[in-house]
Amino acid sequence: MERLGLGIAWTALIIVILFLLLPILVVIPVSFTEATVFRFPPEGFSLQWYQKIRNVDGLLGALWLSAQIAALATGLSLLLGTLCAIALVRGAVPGAAAITTFMVSPLMLPGLVLGIAFLQAMREVGLRDAWWSLLLAHVVITMPFVMRTVLGSLAMFDFAMVDAARTLGCSYPVALWRVLVPNILPGFVSGALFAFIASFDNYPVSMFLVDVRTKTLPIQLLNYLEISPDPTLAAVSTGLIGLTVLVLILCDRLVGLRRMASI
């Protein structure tokens, strides 16, 4: 009976992993095909679809825009979120629990509701610039990830260590830099990673804020998928998957991957 339970659990895990990886791995062989369709098994081997990435209208531009927005939004969230987290942990703010819930609440909202609310508000105040609307909205999307992880690491940090460093002769800023920062770095890295991914992949909020010239990568990809689906898309996807794996390995080296489960 015990064996049976364990057997079921392991079978389930193997099925889950194969099932999860199937749609991701399948795009890789398709991206090297010689044919112009997605037929499986792929025919021949060529890099033509990778060369065609450059020619796809607006794809590189969209990639650049998404990277820009994701990086800036993550940076702004880290700044605002960390200040807020420090205040909540150290400042004896009245209603700290309610404020914390408020700061992480965008995470619980359906993405489309958020997007529609922005769209309407931006029209109401006359902000028609897609770039700025995207940036502002994406700060809201990324804030909860930063708040959760930074708050988590700050709550576990013993501030007496900063005082200890100061008695040992460090100035206050130096003590913060050499004691506080290394201690909350894992929270920073995993928060920033999740924030970046949440912004970079966002579709439901962005779809209401883009315009003809300013399109983020997910929007552009979906457009392309609907208009002219060919293996170029598989090539782009393979590139994105490779990039993700690289970033994950990097984060694993920095803070350890399993700490991220607890975001």
Binding site: V16, P23, V26, V27, D201, L221, T244, A261
Partner: peptide, 24 residues
């Protein structure tokens, strides 16, 4: 390793996954 394999799909774009699911 197993954790990474469960975690990785979370970080892959939903468009890529839906596209791959279409190919499947």
């Amino acid at each position: 390793l197993l954790f990474a394999l469960v975690f990785l799909p979370l970080t892959v774009s939903i468009i890529v996954k839906s596209f791959g699911w279409g190919i499947v």
